[in-house]
Design a protein around this nucleic acid. Sequence first.
RNA 1: GGGGCCGUAGCCCAAUUGGCAGAGGCACUGGAUUUAGGUUCCAGCCAGUGGGGGUUCGAGUCCCCCCGGCCCCA
Length: 947
Amino acid sequence: MGAESTDAVPRHRYTAALAGAIEQRWQRYWEERGTFHAPNPVGPLADGELPDQKMFIQDMFPYPSGSGLHVGHPLGFIGTDVFARFHRMDGRNVLHTMGFDAFGLPAEQYAVQTGQHPRKTTEENMRTYLRQIRRLGLAHDERRRIATIDPEYYRWTQWIFLRIYDSWYDEQADCAKPIASLEQAFAAGDVSTSDGRAWTDLSADERRAEIDERRLAYISEAPVNWCPGLGTVLSNEEVTADGRSERGNFPVFRRNLRQWMMRITAYADRLIDDLDRLDWPDKIKTMQRNWIGRSYGARVHFPCGDSAIEVFTTRPDTLFGNVALILAPEHPLVERITADAWPSDVDSRWTGGATTPAEAVAAYRRAASLKSELDRQENKDKTGVFTGTYATNPVNGERIPVFVADYVLMGYGTGAIGVAPGEDQRDWDFVTVLGITPVRTVQPPAGHPDDTPYPGDGPHVNSSHENGPSLDGLNIDDAKKTITAWLEEHDHGKGAVQYKLRDWLFSRQRYWGEPFPIVYDETGAAHALPESMLPIELPEVDDYSPRTFDPDDADSMPSPPLSRAGDWVEVELDLGDGPKTYRRDVNTMPNWAGSCWYQLRYVDPTNSERFVDPANERYWLGPQDAHGPNDPGGVDLYLGGQEHAVLHLLYSRFWQKVLFDLGDVSSDEPYRKLFNQGYIQAYAYTDARGSYVPAEEVSESDGEFFWNGQKVNQEYGKMGKSLKNVVTPDDMCETYGADTFRFYEMAMGPLDVSRPWATKDVVGAHRFLQRLWRNVIDESTGELRVTDTEPSDEDLRALHKTIDGVRGDYDGLRFNTAGAKLIELNNHVTKAYGKSGTPRTLAEPLVLMLAPLCPHVAEELWSKLGHDNTLAHSTFPVADERYLIEDTVEYPIQVNGKVRSRITVSASATQDEVKATALAEEKIAALLNGEPRKVIVVPGRLVNVVL
RNA sequence: GGGGCCGUAGCCCAAUUGGCAGAGGCACUGGAUUUAGGUUCCAGCCAGUGGGGGUUCGAGUCCCCCCGGCCCCA
């Protein structure tokens, strides 16, 4: 831009350059004065007086990605900032900050490729991230920034792990308790040992095993997705439908491996039931309920040789139709019950072509281990092999064959099912393949096809036995009650609740995560390290990748990166038995660990004595009377994307509840109110060859799109480098300033709705700020142009209506309509005073109301209006009711639903007066033919005359 | 396949929750400023709410069916 053109612009116009200067100045001001420091009740962050009303606002923990931010990332951050600034201006003590969920795979993979320590990469990324968000003017308390990779942070993550490890779930009391009380309970006989022997009869090792088995954090042989080609276990999400790793496309095997587990299932009921006390979107609550998947049914024992197979079913009423049993391929009884030889009359469809049951089962199990769980559940082509063994159906004494089939999963129920083809599609498909005849136990309605199961309700049939119960004629509910009572009475089983939720696999064979504060002695027994040894810091290693194997070597064992840090792994310690050599646990915690409790650390980030001081925790997170008697407490607003609907939010709730049970925190839920923001998406364009072209260089003409003269194809979706459609907040700050960007981003639409980014629309927000600026400042002289003129009655009505509306909008996270109302008021001011100067009584509240959305320009104008202090605290205007009440009301008058005329009456007119005036109105009277059939008067709204 | 959410002007979105379809922005048109373009300012223009049926005095809003899009579960 040349000198000539800048001359044309008035010197004091609100341009991007001026905006940039203002923004930097105020960002420095806020930082230097600690404007957004939120005082704590106690500790280093305490600072004199404490407002009684607090507001704790939290964004979902960002991962500091290396590729930088695009305009979609800060949408939620700006939203929470506007909300936070509004409440701070309304007098509340507002805690809002941001830290980093900084452990994770991308930095580790980068380290594997380049040899650069993941900490270095991560810290660089965090700096970039902070620089980018700092430009946006987010009012964070920067003293409270934390990162999960800081040893002073993960020290407490490890501490919480030990708290969980050191507790058990007391079913009677329905809460977690310290492990010491379990020992007492065992000794007193309140809790029985696994084999029923008396506690005093157990050896020390046996006692330890009993206790270890009941811990909330425990080691188990759990089936996991083992990927030898990558050298690590994978989460289900990382495995493709055809049973291979998403990354690298290596085979993935279901293997039992010793892994840390968290007993989240102990909390299944509370995690479901407490959802009712949360102010969360119904959608997320539903997703959590479905994930936990509570169902009521029965556990039934089917005698089988000298053992018994336990089955869980949600339909015990269909037991008479159980024509077979199925064990999951991983079921521990499979080997024991598999027969030596096929019965002489075995059906060829049952043998898998093998000469003995053992061969058939072994081959089948091997094939099943190659399939993903998803695949096993979804596959419509059912398979299975006969074990050569029969079990006895307890309700009728019939001999039924026992199969192994992979659509039965070990992780759900007991890993064994009774096959009820008459009422279940999967079972129907299964028996069809194996040539077994289905038996219906519920009579389908007339017209139901003969070749499909009937899962609906109806009278039971074929459901009685001389020595057993009779369900015939009963509906499902009554049949379930009857059969469950019968099973319990005859000791064949009992009513049971089943959950889809499984315990949480808590170890990973990675480098870049929290080490476990656990060592193993020479017998392999785990020992917790004392609190005084925390944090257990990550050792330096030469190679950040786990050892990998032949991709098809299913029997290989994981060898995590930490296992090769020899000096670190072998450690001599005195854990009470004198100095001994121990081996450290070489796994690391999963990425979720650090984000399970960060709201607690934000509250007291510098505390070196405790993970959080109870006084600070109670003040910021404790239950509050204002929220009613059942208030769970927690963060006042938690904002983030829906992608964390289940895992993070469930894990976090679980940890919170454990800490609550142990008396470490005062609230039993971490997040009282949850809000999901939408996503900003973008158009992308491909040329004739399908390559992406730079979106910013594409122009539209008559609904078609062109780039460099050639026609291109429009796509809609994510913003990303590979799609060549990235717009960054830095670009927007450069072109328009952060305030314009903030305003536009909030004005685009409701916060919870996804929408397309449109750079060309941003200018509208910029023009608004220019007009508002001009209403306060003379563009050419820079002088204030406010006056002491008394505002008109109309002005005051417009002003107070805006105050009233904007307050409600800010509080309800409706920033788009708040912005529109401010534009409207500003347009009113421009029209009335654009030439003469704005009355101060209008200018000041307008500036204050703008501040949450556009804080820099608002501070600048506020200071130019003669105020020495920041507007950040306790300045938000309050509407005067007087100006919200109208003297007169205009009523549209409809005749048969169509507006035919209007009348203006006093606001105090009664319904009868309004009706009379309406009917007397000239045009309406002319349409009337005698008495109307009906006249509807909606007070304050309209009149409808029905002829 | 099951469940949920959403379709309002050329585009992004409002609509006091069943009461006058339009607040705000973009684009567009005209005018002012400017040597001109751009900027800026002022004024104006545009739909009857995806389609069909129902309830109601009255439906964008409630109910049913269909179409299109997104999400979750299988």
